[in-house]
């Protein structure tokens, strides 16, 4: 009850919870496409690749305005994705290795730039390193508004392109045969994913962002076979994990918000894999038992 009260009246807590809610919902929606398209690990690479973009945006622009930094992060994430596609296409490296390669090299670059900045005398860069682990507690109302604006944009685009996204996700061959621009649509999905990742960096950080995409989507996948429901559920699960994690971390001392949110989302995923009706492991075990008894 006290928690609810402070949620309504405590400015800081309300900001954090709202931010995490938006983040969870948006990443749930886009994560669904990522998981279905077998691109789960792309999120991890993109979120690491965004780091040099953040630092460069700060070096060039000199401000820590969230939109400027997000722009830098999105650009770097996008460049990373294009490089990834180029490496996979023009070499015999497996996608897996290419992902790990780009992830570590871009992240290393970001780290190098960051420490390079830090050791210069005017250390106004303080606070950039919160992108590593995220700092939900540092969210301001203006951050949340930026989050909500970009999040709304993402949702509108997904709804507008819903049919095309659906077709490209499940049957790209057919989509191409009826004259859809499959490559452009695939790039659009990836681009939106980059945006969602960039949104999350401030809250949960580079390392844990990928889980915000994957866990709610994996959980939602267990409950339904319809895309619409899956996306809705994933958004719900993401939002739940976001708000729940934020609240829990504020209620318990020394509990960082980012990892708590991720653990919440992972718990929902685990619960769903075990217990979801029809697909869940327990359900399957019971059905197998019933078949045995009958035969």
């Amino acid at each position: 009850m006290r928690l609810l009260e402070s949620l309504l009246f405590d400015y800081t807590l309300r900001t954090i919870a709202l931010g995490s809610l938006v983040l969870g919902a948006v990443s749930g929606v886009l994560g669904s496409f990522a998981v279905l398209r077998r691109q789960s690990l792309l999120g991890d690479t993109v979120s690491h690749a965004a780091l040099p973009g953040i630092v460069l945006a700060f070096m060039l622009g000199g401000s820590k305005a969230p939109l400027a930094l997000m722009l830098g992060a999105a650009t770097a994430g996008w460049v990373g994705t294009l490089l990834l596609l180029a490496v996979v296409r023009h070499s015999r490296l497996k996608e897996d290795s290419a992902l790990a390669l780009l992830l570590s090299v871009f992240f290393g670059l970001g780290l190098m730039l960051l420490t390079f900045l830090q050791r210069r005398p005017d250390s106004s860069q303080a606070g950039l390193d919160r992108f590593l682990f995220g700092q939900a507690a540092g969210l301001l109302a203006s951050d949340v508004i930026a989050l909500a604006a970009v999040g709304a944009l993402v949702l509108v685009l997904v709804l507008a392109l819903w049919k095309s996204f659906k077709l490209v996700t499940f049957d790209p061959g057919f989509a191409a045969s009826i004259g859809m621009r499959v490559r452009a649509l695939e790039l659009a999905i990836t681009w939106l994913m980059v945006l969602a990742i960039v949104l999350g960096l401030q809250t949960v950080g580079v390392v844990l962002m990928s889980s915000m995409l994957i866990a709610p989507a994996v959980a939602a996948r267990q409950w339904t076979d319809r895309l619409g429901r899956m996306v809705g559920l994933a958004a719900l699960f993401g939002a739940l994990a976001g708000v729940g994690g934020a609240l829990l971390s504020s209620a318990v001392e020394k509990l960082p918000a980012g990892p708590t949110i991720v653990l919440g989302a992972s718990a929902i995923a685990l619960f769903s894999v075990l217990l979801a009706p029809h697909r869940g492991l327990l359900w399957r075990r019971l059905r197998a038992r019933r078949l045995e008894v009958e035969s």
Binding site: R38, S40, L41, L208, T260, L263, V273, G280
Partner: peptide, 30 residues
């Protein structure tokens, strides 16, 4: 996780390691 057939392999990787890493971070913080 991969063998249950409920989760694709790449998603399984992406699910397991952030969860474990989060546990580690929480343990350190606490």
């Amino acid at each position: 996780l991969g063998r249950t057939g409920l989760v694709a392999r790449d998603a399984a990787i992406g699910l397991v390691f952030p969860a474990l890493f989060s546990i580690g971070v929480v343990l350190i913080a606490r």
